[in-house]
Design a protein around this nucleic acid. Structure first.
Lengths: 199, 199
DNA sequence: CGAAGGTTGGACCGCGCGTTCCATTCTTGC
DNA sequence: GCAAGAATGGAACGCGCGGTCCAACCTTCG
């Protein structure tokens, strides 16, 4: 008997409560007392369910957030098989990050965890999955003859990842979503094989 | 008599010593003792020259680093008036960040200062100057007929900023500079008005 | 029903680190 | 050369916060 139903529920409450706290107006640097307060738990429970302490909690929350990053792009990112699908996906990404405004929960978390192996694993895994989905969209378009088959799908997907990361970062620091929109538009037009102006 | 020559030298030593420390293998989160140790000063001096304490020091160092960001792109970024100039600039940017590897001193600093007004001022001012320089490069090329005059220089410059930020972030978290290279190549090709493959 | 063990609450500890303070030594201007 | 004030060193403080511990509950199962 290592974890009863009640225990599992509490553990989940901690993760989701902390996750919700990250969307608050002032997440800044989170303390265990913040988490305790926003989840209605005690220090004892925090360490009972996460023996690894703060880092283990933050990583669990980060994994939870990473799931949402991909989930929020569904269903569009799973079927990038037409130009309208790409546009809708672009809009979903922009909308997602505009909604969060200056708060990128995952970004905040990763800042606090620092550069531990666990942190690298979480970001790495997310970015890999993300890039793979985009890459699949590109190859799908290629197999249907909608994108020049000479285009390097890996490089294109890498550029999207970089562009999105940078666009979001600019949104975080300036509050302006234009950067994200512009870079996505240009990258999609690059897939189309022609410049924005010739649209 | 508010600051003698000796005093000015010490103040400068603090900034440059701390700046050097940020390029060390393990900057992580910097403490005042780190700065004290790597600058050969005492706590007294730190607060004597920076009454605002840690934040004031970090902001001064950040301003110092921000200067270097632009300086490291010189002279290329000042004369983006031919395609070879753009290529050389691209190479300079890639080389600069590859040299720093996973350590982006400025990024590290800004993480630690958090989101104070002073921090926003430093990043905002740097990004504005940076974007302006790129924008000037675009308009220069346009006035010489090397870039389609219908292209929106502001949007193009914004995309470069976002792309660079994202590329650097990917370099920081994966150690791979490909992201930065790819996104810069695509954006420059976008300026050329044709896709990479047709090169 | 009663023991075993999971669950909960909160008092307590220790330490890292920013900050303060003051005594001592150097500089400068008259 | 002598005050006034800047520069320097370092001891001491305080507190925020991660982590520990244990006593008191609740749940399960023989």
């Amino acid at each position: 008997m290592a974890l009863t139903a009640k225990g599992r529920a509490t553990r989940q409450r901690i993760i989701e409560g902390a996750s919700a706290h990250m969307r608050t107006d002032a997440p800044g640097t989170v303390t265990l007392d913040d988490i305790r307060a926003s989840t209605g738990t005690s220090k004892g429970q925090l360490f009972h369910y996460f023996p690894g302490g703060k880092e283990e909690i933050l990583l669990a929350v980060a994994r939870h957030e990473a799931e949402r990053v991909i989930a929020d792009q569904r269903p569009h990112i799973d079927a990038l098989n037409s130009w309208t699908a790409w546009t809708r996906w672009r809009d979903a990404v922009v909308a997602r990050y505009r909604a969060h405004g200056a708060h990128c929960p995952l970004g905040n978390l990763m800042n606090q965890v620092g550069s531990t192996p666990g942190a690298a694993e979480v970001t790495g895994s997310l970015l890999d999955r993300w890039q793979l989905l985009i890459r699949q969209g590109v190859t799908t378009m290629q197999s249907e003859g909608l994108i020049d088959s000479g285009l390097d799908a890996d490089r294109a997907a890498a550029a999207f990842i970089a562009g999105i990361q940078g666009g979001v970062q600019m949104l975080r620091s300036t509050g302006d979503s234009t950067y994200l929109e512009v870079v996505l538009d240009i990258l999609i037009d690059h897939l189309r094989g022609r410049s924005v102006q010739e649209r």
